[in-house]
Nucleic acid binder design. Structure first.
Lengths: 251, 251
DNA sequence: ACAAAAGTGTTACTTTTACACCCATGA
DNA sequence: TCATGGGTGTAAAAGTAACACTTTTGT
């Protein structure tokens, strides 16, 4: 991996170090206080929030770029990350927005600057353990923090659209693969897991039926019950198998 | 839409008319003789086949580019088309391959040519009515024709990978949405439809259960039975609703 | 008239839903 | 001790899977 370029580097030498016309945006989901949260940057030069994003080094895959961006904003690696859609509307790039940032950062503003071109953005969503995240702002943002989804803040450019698509992708994925677990700590209780599912799917579920179904997947191990709610964790092998094969259903 | 550029145009002025670093590849599926087929180009300058693909005009969405490419190769528009994945491996572009094509076409070969850069490719799969397609080769191919999938021909660059991913995406989609119908003519028989499902999913299904389930979706209209196998067609309204809402299942 | 393919219904089994009571914990 | 939340089982309903015979069509 390369050294992290500064904004100045990006503006001045972006064309050399990055793949042109392509960016990566990450929708990072966490779960806290029985709510689904999303990690957003508060932009420095506009009263807007934005998704963590970045560019792809010349010899890097988009996946690696997403991992890198995630690591920078959360301190985490080895987390669940999935490419879900590529956004290509020619009007999605906002020249004025970037031009403004370049000016405010006191950099030379030539109109053909690399940053001002049209970008398509490859969207990833990430599921992380809220408690493990150490949000870190980037150079162009004042802060990096968790936000609620209903309603979500107003985001720059087409980021609200990206966020919505990510949410849809997550909801669909949840029906096929046990992805939700990535949002929880290593040990968790059944009610916590249920709340998580209810939050993501935006509907209430029957406690007993939920438990039966989840346990039926055979991917959970019951921990020793000290007190009231039992603690569960994964049977890692079965869990990975389930991730690969899906949870059945269909023909 | 713009005029279709020639290969010479592309090589010489690609950088001006197209979005750089991004291409579109289309996996076009058809159904014929109880087999799933894919439309491939036979390359001119290498003993390889390739997926129909192309580039994105400066003011065009990737979706529009895919529609355009499809129209050029099949003569069809208004067909089912879905973005399924973006391929970003830096080694997926094959400089030698393009360089060779440029040479063989008798064009000047500067090493920094636009075509020789790294490309990420946005993958689309299309489902078309086999009988309506008029395959048309492009400038760099000798022919455009249907091919079997098991086994599929050896394809250029990472196109075998793209094809496999498209197939997987189609199989998964089929469990959620009634997409298979796009591969059939307006009127079709139940056995035809079943064969289609069996082919895509690569497994056999019970006739009676299949019929019941399909009819249960309420998206088919029974035609007048002249002779033996009944003809079915869509209840367009219900069909579109089902496309939107999925076929149920899950939580 | 024979073979091949299409049409149809019932039964067992599995999965899903709906629902109520007891126990432990903490206020 | 009372309220809250967590734990557990059963019965009805729906859906799925398995299965065989009759009718039509084409040769």
């Amino acid at each position: 991996m390369q050294i992290k370029p500064t904004f100045k580097n990006i503006v001045q030498t972006g064309a050399k170090i990055f793949l042109s016309s392509v960016s990566v945006d990450c929708v990072i989901f966490g779960f806290y206080g029985n709510e689904l949260k999303v990690l957003l940057l508060q932009m420095k030069h506009a009263d807007l929030h934005g998704l963590p994003g970045g560019f792809i080094f010349r010899e890097e895959t988009a996946d690696a770029a997403a991992v890198r961006i995630l690591k920078e904003r959360t301190g985490l690696d080895a987390i669940f990350l999935k490419q879900f859609y590529t956004f290509t509307d020619p009007r999605r790039s906002d020249k004025k927005f970037h031009l403004n940032a370049i000016k405010k950062e006191g950099l030379a503003t030539d109109k053909d600057n690399w940053l001002l071109q049209r970008f398509v953005s490859i969207g990833y969503y990430a599921l992380v353990d809220f408690s493990k995240v150490l949000p870190a702002a980037d150079e162009l943002s004042v802060s990096c923090a968790w936000h609620q989804l209903y309603p979500a803040p107003v985001l720059m450019m087409d980021h609200n659209n990206i966020l919505n698509k990510a949410l849809l992708a997550l909801q669909q994925q949840l029906n096929n693969q046990p992805v939700g677990f990535n949002l929880l700590p290593l040990k968790f209780t059944m009610p916590e897991l249920q709340k998580l599912y209810e939050t993501i799917l935006n509907k209430t579920l029957d406690r007993r039926n939920f438990q039966r179904k989840i346990l039926g997947f055979g991917i959970l191990k019951k921990g020793v019950a000290h007190k009231a709610p039992f603690l569960y964790s994964f049977d890692v092998i079965n869990y990975n198998t389930a991730l690969m094969n899906g949870l059945g259903g269909g023909w």
